[in-house]
């Protein structure tokens, strides 16, 4: 399934898979479900904005975003490759999936460094 000839992308896939597996369920549950519902503490704007502005939050999220994008790109590449059997389009699929991941990483960096 996964090729040993892409150790670089496989490394990003692997690291991103681990980081997202460990962190994303809790992060998403709190930010997308319990906070809007007003469950538990920390529902106000001020608290969230203070946390969002902290350099550690931004650096951490940038690392998560970088690895998550390349993890998803690598996995989706092989979903198309195996699932839809697009063997002849492998080069094009690789360029598009990793390309999207790279562009999104740059945008995430711009957002987290310049805007937030």
């Amino acid at each position: 399934m996964r090729r040993a000839r892409d150790p670089f992308f496989w490394g990003l896939f692997s690291g991103g898979g681990m980081l997202t597996a460990l962190l994303l369920p809790a992060l998403f549950l709190v930010t997308a479900i319990t906070a809007p519902m007003g469950w538990f503490g920390m529902t106000g704007y001020e608290e969230w904005a203070t946390l969002a502005g902290h350099p550690l939050t931004r650096a951490g999220l940038l690392l998560v975003a970088f690895l998550a994008f390349f993890h998803a790109a690598h996995r989706f590449r092989y979903t198309l490759y195996d699932g839809l059997q697009l063997y002849h389009l492998d080069a094009l699929i690789s360029i598009v999936t990793y390309g999207v991941a790279a562009v999104l990483t740059v945008l995430a960096a711009a957002l987290l460094i310049l805007v937030v």
Binding site: L27, G53, F69, L111, L112, V116
Partner: peptide, 19 residues
Amino acid sequence: SQPVMYVTLFLLGKMWVLS
């Protein structure tokens, strides 16, 4: 991979909204 992608974009979107 698609939920992972969505949630990452969601978290970045929340950061943008907070700003």
